[in-house]
């Protein structure tokens, strides 16, 4: 039985005012309206959120784990990007 595959969606929830939407999981739905409805039923049964995003999984572009070092390693040596790199005399007080 070759049923057509129902598209996959990623679900994001904003749990409280002022917070960002956070990825919580995924689900299958034929279209956006059904994806939202299913996200409500599957991921917010106990007041988990105030707002939902559903995004077609195929629309997400991800970095390749194999490129992890090339992508993220260079920042490790750039300690001058952090405030603690700079010396401020104690007499100046909090800055």
């Amino acid at each position: 039985m070759a049923e057509p595959k129902i598209p996959l969606w990623e679900v994001f929830i904003r749990s409280r005012n002022g917070l960002a939407h956070k990825h919580v999981g995924s689900l299958h739905a034929a279209d956006a309206a059904m994806a939202l409805q299913a996200a409500r039923d599957v991921y917010t049964r106990r007041g988990e959120g105030l707002s939902l995003w559903v995004v077609p999984s195929a629309a997400i572009v991800a970095s390749d784990p194999a490129d992890k070092e090339v992508m993220f390693e260079p920042t490790a040596s750039k300690i001058y990007r952090h405030p603690t790199f700079y010396e401020v005399p104690d007499e100046v007080g909090h800055m």
Binding site: E3, P4, I6, A29, A30, D31, M34
Partner: peptide, 14 residues
């Protein structure tokens, strides 16, 4: 099965 088929057909039509 008919619900899944109908949902997919509706999405395709839209």
């Amino acid at each position: 099965a008919w619900v899944r088929e109908a949902a997919m057909a509706h999405a395709a039509k839209r």
